[in-house]
Design a protein around this nucleic acid. Structure first.
Length: 278
DNA sequence: AAAACCGCCTGTCGGC
DNA sequence: TGCCGACAGGCGGTTT
């Protein structure tokens, strides 16, 4: 579910309300969510300590914890991290964990499909969190330059869509924003990476940054499950041009949009604006 | 290196 | 209306 813009929105909305508040209790209702150490130890290490910072890497949220620890959260498909100022509200049906701040409210991890994860690690030691350890570059950072992107595509025969979804290359793109970026750049998802012209590479590079930034400005895309840290819906679903629009007309040329499985994922594209054979 | 599977879960939707 | 399979925004693991 949540991709970079959604996770970044959760970060920004939680940042003002969860830092510097001692954790008074940690309740875990879905034990499997805690990945890398016994539940008791997980709770003991957190209770009495505060979060001191919250950053994002790809689709991961990393809470700094007093005492040189980091709490790493991944929402996977349906996870939500929502701050509640009062503990009186009944728990949602699929609540996986609750971090209580006493009078300071509580942070709840809600997750219908229970794929979401929590890891507590010594600061910077990510070896046990494989996806984070092997994560590629941040697409909104300076490191993701045109030159970097050109080199990434060079000589790679893999389909461009598959490459965009590969978190070890670029961190944070998922199915929605990969499709939206490819549409904006006018590139078919099944083109092989190395077949893109210099101009296409430039367009796709720019499109990725623009789409992600615009989605963040709209607090992400809510189809069903995603909520901000305040529990509110995003609004970028109203700005989508191609994702989930099967059968609709292309907003650019009016031709009927198509979709097919690419790299195991439903992929939307305009057969006229995004040519399979350039 | 890359693709094609499966599994993890629950809910929803479309077809019959 | 009910049932049943397909499918969903992610990712790790295995096999080819």
């Amino acid at each position: 579910m949540p991709e970079l813009p959604e996770v970044e929105t959760v970060r920004r909305t939680l940042l003002p309300v969860v830092l510097h508040k001692p954790i008074t209790a940690v309740s875990v209702f879905t034990h499997r969510i805690v990945q890398n150490r016994p539940l008791e130890q997980f709770q003991e290490l957190l209770v009495g300590r505060s979060f001191t910072d919250l950053i994002r890497r790809g689709k991961y949220l990393i809470f700094s914890v007093e005492g040189g620890l980091e709490l790493i959260a991944h929402l996977r498909m349906t996870g939500r991290l929502i701050y509640y100022s009062s503990p009186d509200l009944p728990l949602a049906k699929h609540t996986s964990a609750v971090f209580s701040f006493g009078e300071g409210g509580e942070l709840r991890f809600e997750d219908v499909r229970k794929f979401g994860t929590l890891d507590l690690v010594p600061q910077g030691e990510y070896q046990s969190v494989k996806g984070l350890y092997t994560l590629g570059v941040e697409p909104l950072s300076d490191e993701f330059s045109l030159g970097f992107f050109q080199e990434l595509l060079l000589g790679r025969k893999t389909k461009i869509k598959a490459l965009l979804l590969d978190q070890t290359k670029i961190a944070g793109l998922g199915n929605i924003y990969a499709d939206e970026s490819l549409f904006q750049a006018g590139i078919h998802p099944e083109r092989s990476a190395h077949s893109l012209t210099a101009e296409e590479v430039q367009r796709l590079h720019a499109a990725i940054k623009e789409v992600l930034e615009l989605a963040i400005a709209h607090q992400g895309t809510t189809f069903r499950d995603y909520r901000t840290g305040y529990g509110r819906e995003g609004s970028f679903q109203n700005q989508l041009r191609i994702y989930g629009k099967k059968g609709a007309d292309c907003p650019r040329c009016g031709v009927q949009l198509e979709y097919r499985k690419v790299a195991g994922r439903t992929s939307h594209f305009c057969p006229a604006c995004q040519r399979e054979q350039p």
